[in-house]
Design a protein around this nucleic acid. Structure first.
Lengths: 151, 151
DNA sequence: TATTGTTATACTCTATAACTATA
DNA sequence: TATAGTTATAGAGTATAACAATA
């Protein structure tokens, strides 16, 4: 008689059967990075997405929502939601574009500027946690592959 | 007089200033993979997480929620939510563990088994999309690094 | 006391659809 | 017609806190 398909009570569960799924490893690594990020930013109460958007507005004052959406591969409405949260926190101002009435111009508030500066320091710490265990060569190879996936 | 900090109207926004942030590339790659996955699974209406849990239950009939939570680094309540969705779709059955009354034993339903088989074929297609552009050596190096991040 | 499941609650990200204003 | 922003709505994942049952 065949073994019952539920006769696995003494088998220790593992991910072995899924080990070849690259997408799973990406998802798990992303989750680990996400958790360390949130821990690092527990004081500032900012998410990865929010810091990234803040950083972009800092780098390109007057940037529009659609620009951010395209750079981060987000939907217009998704971008709207993230920017709304940053505005509610008082970090970003919306204005009208003088050249194109359809566009918003996004800029950092005074608070936004100082918060971004602080956030950059924390991102550096978080990145050190992430990169510290790898050689520069490994990081380069890793980022090259990631870019070929998302670009 | 200094240049105004909003005098960037003719600058094309880019991610250049964030290019050194490894975590961002992981997030963007994860997003790209997520979107292709959802597209691939639009018929089956299953997410990455759901397929992963279904696969684990298929590999280890009788597995408990806490086992899954630990393998995928999820909270107990988060795992509960995912399993609830799979049960609502009729793919998973809950039972009592005979040896430990605190534990649930999770098993696939008949529908769950056929759905998992179908899902595995689609995961293969999705993984081909992901891995097709890389050499076996690149994939190995990539997965090695991802594992060192999440393990 | 510790573990497992459960429920309640909340927040973020994600997207689609439809509407408004502008180009 | 096309683009940008907006609003409404919905679903998924994530987590914390507190409770019940069990070990």
């Amino acid at each position: 008689m065949a073994i019952q398909d539920d006769d696995l009570s003494d088998v220790k569960p593992s991910l072995d059967g899924l080990d070849h799924i690259v997408g799973l490893h990406v998802a798990l690594a992303h989750g680990a990075i996400y958790r360390n990020f949130m821990e690092t930013f527990s004081n500032l109460e900012l998410t990865q997405r929010q810091v990234t958007c803040l950083w972009l507005v800092g780098d390109f004052p007057g940037i529009s929502q659609i620009d951010i959406a395209q750079l981060l591969t987000m939907d217009r409405a998704t971008t709207m939601a993230v920017i709304n949260r940053l505005q509610a926190k008082g970090l970003i101002m919306r204005g009208k574009s003088p050249s194109d009435g359809r566009r918003q111009t996004l800029k950092l508030t005074r608070t936004g500027k100082s918060t971004l500066a602080e956030a950059k320091g924390m991102v550096a710490a978080h990145e050190e946690w992430l990169k510290g265990r790898f050689s520069a060569r490994e990081i380069k190879s890793f980022v090259d592959i990631l870019k070929r996936i998302h670009e």
